[in-house]
């Protein structure tokens, strides 16, 4: 990458105006932020670190996947984040109103790497891991990919994000909930099994996944015997988001078999799924 390119892609630390902060499920919100200086730098799979307070509680910013980049007349002018209201940070976020300004650092982390020749993609999301899916799907469509399947699972109807917020038009979206209140009853991994069984998911396809560790583990165990690689968007508690606090390590298997700590924020947050070593995995 040239110096000019890397400068154009470097993160910025600034404020943007909130254009919209709307509720899409009883617990899920989407915030749209005007950020014409930052948006053109954003690539699918990256994240931003949002200041949820101008005060010192909560002290730290909150890392959020970029849900989509807002385009105006073909120019990227802003971005959206999708979040569940869970703790003090996201409670502050959902109380913010249109017209308020919000601080952010971004874009941060790496972006998707689609293998040459891949013509199909399966995007697997669990819970609020649905956050980055729309941006990834839009990027794949823009690359000319025509067969994109999104497999999305959530707890129940209170947590299930409407399909139009999950993926752009032109994608096939499969929805399930744990209790069957929306879509199929069961886990998202059952869709993955179906796709493999029907020959619609092979090692030549691109797989992206974001969700809880239990889902990562299940998806990995399904894909591994078939030699299907996947990119996992990980999440860890972060202090800074740009590689200085060393507070967000996760364990990754190296080519020589050893296991090393990598930083979620700057070494990821996307990692090859089969290299991640989760709590409870054999060392």
């Amino acid at each position: 990458m040239s110096d000019t390119q890397s400068t154009l892609l470097a993160p910025v630390c600034m404020e943007g105006e909130i254009l919209e902060n709307r509720q899409v499920t009883p617990v899920t919100w989407i915030m749209k932020i005007h950020a014409p200086d930052a948006a053109p730098r954003m690539r699918a799979g990256q994240f931003v670190n949002l200041a949820t307070s101008v005060d010192i509680v909560p002290l730290l910013r909150r890392p959020m996947s970029i849900h989509r980049v807002v385009q105006h007349m073909g120019v990227a002018t802003g971005f959206c984040v999708l979040y569940d209201v869970i703790g003090p940070g996201t409670r502050n976020l959902h109380a913010m109103k249109k017209g308020q300004r919000i601080g952010f650092i971004g874009p941060l982390g790496n972006s998707i790497t689609v293998p040459d020749g891949a013509t199909r993609a399966v995007l697997i999301a669990g819970g609020v891991g649905v956050g980055p899916i729309k941006f990834v799907a839009e990027a794949l469509l823009a690359m000319g990919m025509r067969h994109i399947t999104v497999a999305y699972g959530s707890r129940d109807s209170d947590h299930c994000v409407p399909v139009k917020e999950v993926a752009p038009d032109g994608c096939r979206v499969l929805v399930c909930t744990d209790d069957g209140s929306v879509g199929r009853k069961g886990f998202v991994t059952e869709f993955v099994t179906d796709e493999i069984t029907r020959g619609r998911l092979t090692p030549n396809d691109y797989v992206f996944t974001c969700g809880p560790v239990a889902m990562f583990r299940a998806v990995r165990d399904l894909l591994l015997p078939h030699g299907i690689p996947a990119e996992a968007a990980t999440e860890e508690y972060m202090g800074c988001g740009f590689g200085v606090c060393f507070g967000c390590p996760l364990r990754q298997r190296q080519p020589d078999g050893s296991v090393e700590y990598k930083l979620c924020c700057v070494d990821g947050c996307l990692f090859p799924l089969d290299t991640l070593v989760f709590e409870g995995d054999p060392a």
Binding site: I56, P58, L59, L60, C245, F246, C248, P249
Partner: peptide, 10 residues
């Protein structure tokens, strides 16, 4: 990990 935990103002 975990290596970090937030507290009020710290």
């Amino acid at each position: 990990p975990p290596r970090l935990a937030e507290l009020p103002g710290g």
